[in-house]
Design a protein around this nucleic acid. Structure first.
Lengths: 306, 306
DNA sequence: AATCTTTGTTGTCTATAAGGCACTAATGGT
DNA sequence: ACCATTAGTGCCTTATAGACAACAAAGATT
């Protein structure tokens, strides 16, 4: 038996004082209400209504049952309403996981703006270069460098993540400026370590990928520390352009233009992706954040960093 | 969609943290829960649970929805429980409507005892000789003098209601003691007035009903007042034996033994009936009162009044 | 790292329950 | 006393939930 339906019928019969009127409201024949209410009474083992062809009024039990049930139905209505408003308005807790470098440099400043736009959203941003599982973890949005979309995750390419080689002018003065990728082998290298391991320098020559890594001076997953070493002239560093950009502009570093381009991956789709759970997880807070991030990151890319 | 069922499923899945475990509790296949919860989510337009094959945990909305829904289900449980316990123990308000005379003389004293037996029952007794509608009025039990059972009302014959003629010894000494019913016409009469009108004295002679009413001294619907007049020797009074009995025993009145018996109705089924709504209206308080009244009235009839 | 087991989901069929409709009975008003 | 409205009931149709099997995926185990 659909108990809730029976309850709604019962309450409406009480309020209209008539099976017929109540039935009209639900657009079902009065017989349905009669049956449902009778079922309800049987299941309770009590008579709720005293019926006559002209008057329908409550028994004593019916009276108290009606009061409580109508209150319960109202609560249920409010609860559903709350869920729907949650679905309609961006609000609640938004969990974002981001790579450390991108997070510090780009994400956090942007999210300050975001907070002002959506004060009802509480931000929980964790920075880590570990692989985000996204499915199991309590994360709404993840930002990762990588290759391609995932299984049941939507991925939006936020910006290019091509690694470019840089060195300080003073290092180049001392060791010479390499022109060909093959020359790198005789240089000194500063290596960024992803969770998967040290990122090698590779280049494609005649369709063949070749490792052109220089001797390692330092390996770290801390981009800032590596940048400082590069600026100090300790070696050549491969880093994403959005990291090196400010230092190149200030003249502290020089971007090397090598003939066969050097890369750190064979996959041309290597970029920074914004990942979020599949479509059905499109709650407003997530949509708001996704739209905001995509718009603002691309804008900043064009204005000051590309 | 059976929303309530879906809610119960959802709550149980949350509490067990597993569709399979919850399904076992309801003794249905897990697929049913999966579908019902999915339906619920669709109808709300929100994802309540984040499922994986190993872990099921709540989304943010799901969390708040669960809290509220589980509280609501609990309330509903309590409400049903209340109705069922109401059915189990005689309690609540018991409304009785009774004829005035019977009420004052017999019912009220008995109901004092009843109150001690069932302290949880609140009594609401109204005395009136008006015809009780019972179906429309808010009455659980009605006690009326009359003839036969009604339509959909159960009637139990409480006691005989035969009217017998009485007079004071001093009246009879002054006016003579009638032997035949036909002699009554030359006497003085005190008449009880039912709502339908003055009750005539009639007698059946050779299958023919004849009016043998005496000249009216007083007519009233107040039995006590008429009794006083009869005791004062103002005339002959027809009253139910259960009314006259104490005065006959005390010698204040004498019951007349007339040859063709005098009556106030042609119908031999004239008696005092206890009426209550048909079987389905068998709440414990009503049952308790009916059983009590039937037992006690009949007992008192045998002991001191018959 | 590969395999295995558990678990949630999906497709298809069946059983059950609610709706629709015509009719009856009874109540309250005219 | 009659009439109209209204609740209840039988019978049929339609919608919805359950059963069973197969599948897919995520963790755990070795």
């Amino acid at each position: 038996m659909d108990q809730l339906r029976a309850l709604r019928y019962f309450v409406k019969v009480v309020e209209t004082g008539s099976f017929t009127k109540a039935a009209a409201i639900f657009s079902v024949p009065p017989s349905s209400l009669s049956r449902r209410v009778a079922d309800l009474e049987n299941s309770l083992g009590a008579t709720l209504l005293k019926r006559s062809t002209r008057v329908v009024n409550l028994t004593e039990v019916g009276e108290s049952y009606y009061k409580q049930v109508s209150a319960i139905l109202e609560q249920l209505e409010h609860t559903d309403e709350a869920v729907r408003s949650y679905q309609a308005n961006p609000m609640g807790l938004l969990r974002i996981s981001s790579m450390v470098g991108f997070g510090e440099r780009i994400l956090l400043p942007l999210m300050d703006e975001f907070s002002e736009l959506y004060p009802q959203i509480t931000l929980d941003i964790s920075l880590s270069d570990e692989l985000s599982t996204l499915s199991r973890d309590q994360v709404d949005i993840a930002i990762r460098g990588g290759y391609a979309p995932d299984e049941r995750v939507y991925a939006i390419k936020l910006m290019d993540n091509r690694f470019v080689p840089v060195a300080s002018p003073d290092y180049l003065a001392r060791n010479g400026t390499p022109i060909s990728a093959l020359e790198l082998k005789s240089h000194r290298g500063l290596y960024f370590k992803a969770p998967a391991g040290r990122m090698p320098w590779i280049t494609e020559i005649n369709g063949q990928w070749q490792d052109v890594s220089a001797a390692a001076v330092s390996i770290s997953n801390n981009g800032r520390w590596l940048m400082d070493k590069a600026i100090a002239g300790q070696g050549i560093l491969m880093m994403p352009r959005w990291v090196t950009q400010p230092f190149v502009l200030s003249g502290e570093l020089v971007e090397l233009a090598l003939d066969p381009e050097v890369s750190i991956t064979e996959n041309p789709n290597f970029a920074i992706y914004l990942l979020y759970q599949k479509l059905r997880y499109q709650v407003p807070k997530v949509k708001a954040a996704v739209d905001f991030l995509v718009a603002r990151v691309r804008a900043s890319e064009h204005s000051g960093m590309d």
